[in-house]
Structure formats: C-alpha cells, structure tokens
Amino acid sequence: MSVAVLRFPGSLDHESAQRAVESVGGIATSVWHADAELPAGVGAVVVPGGFSYGDHLRPGAVASRAPIMGAVRRHVDRGGLVLGICNGFQVLCEAGLLPGALRPNATLTFVCRQASVEVADDGSPWTAPLGVGARLSIPIKNNQGAWFGHPEIDRVALRYVGDDRLGSVTAAAGVLDESGRVLGLMPHPEEACDPLLGSTDGQSLFGVAAAA
C-alpha cells in the first residue's frame, strides 16, 4: 500500500513528507487537490503543511472544500488512516474530520523552533507504537497553532512539554478523531526524519502510515 500525500496550491511540505515516507521504506504518491478520487492501493493519506490557498478566509478553509477531500472522507469511512500536519491539521478541522479549531498563537507571531511533545493517548494506530509518555523532539512552525476544543470530550494525542504551548488548550499539540484513525498535529514530524536534521523522532508516525 502507498501513502498519498495531498498537494494544494500553496502546499509547502509535500515533498518533505514524501521523503519522510521514503525514509522509513514506504512508497509515497503525490495526489492533486482537484482529483476526485485517491489512487488505488492507498493505505494512509498525509495532508501536508504549508499555506494552502494562502490561508485566505481561514487557514485550511478553502482546501477543506477541495474535490479530493470528498475522497479523503470516504477513505476514513472505509477505515483508512489520515495524518494532517500543521496546515493539514487545520484543513482536517475545517473539514470536520477532527474536532476543534486552530487559533492564532498566543504570541501573535509566527513561531519556528524545536519543540518537545509527549504522547497523551496511545489508543490509536498512530500513537500505539510510541506509548503514553513517549517524548518526541519535533519542530513547530506556524502562525495559528493554538488548538481550541473540548479536551474532556476530544481526544488529545500529543501535548507540548514545557513552555512551547502556543496558547493551545491543555497544551494540545495533536488531536485524534473519535475512531483514532485521523490524527492532526501542529509540529512537523517530516522535519525530524533524518539524523542530519538533528532528530529522527518523526519517523514513527511515517512508519505507521507506510505500514497501513
């Protein structure tokens, strides 16, 4: 099975995500936003980071209505896995595939730095291999990364450790849907898949995608 990496106008991290999939031995396929169907044989979908449609209206709002998102919805209904990274997380929230919304950072600025996150919920295909309490060093880089939702109802998968919480409710860095098959996170695991980049902690998530 291959990993479909979506590409919208303004996607920026699609190539890095494809390389991350390949770094764990997976096969990545680029999928265009205007397509109505995913290619055959896709086990997992990655919605990559970037500024799809220039963040016009709200981050992710326009991309969440792209033709390919109907196919992503059907993929989830069939039991498929979806990973949304940064803008991809915003797209999935706008599409209603993940709970809550992303608000501007408490700093009111773009923030780019290495962050430490901890697994808070390992009852999902994405986080099971890591286990609760596992810590990952992964960069964050966003303008609107402050998740707002109902942490007592919604499933928070990852939390920031330390001060890098951006104003996120309960320091949430990543959120699951009810089924656990859809994960969205603000940190960029595709930027942590190579020793030369200082961390390989992102590979676990891509390993799950590649094996799906």
Partner: peptide, 14 residues
Amino acid sequence: VFEQYDHLVGANTI
C-alpha cells in the same frame, strides 16, 4: 528575529 521565520521548510537546513 529568526524564530519568526520558517528557517526549516524543505527539511534541508542542517
């Protein structure tokens, strides 16, 4: 200054 810039995108900044 530089934390307001995405200095990592592309996953090549070593």
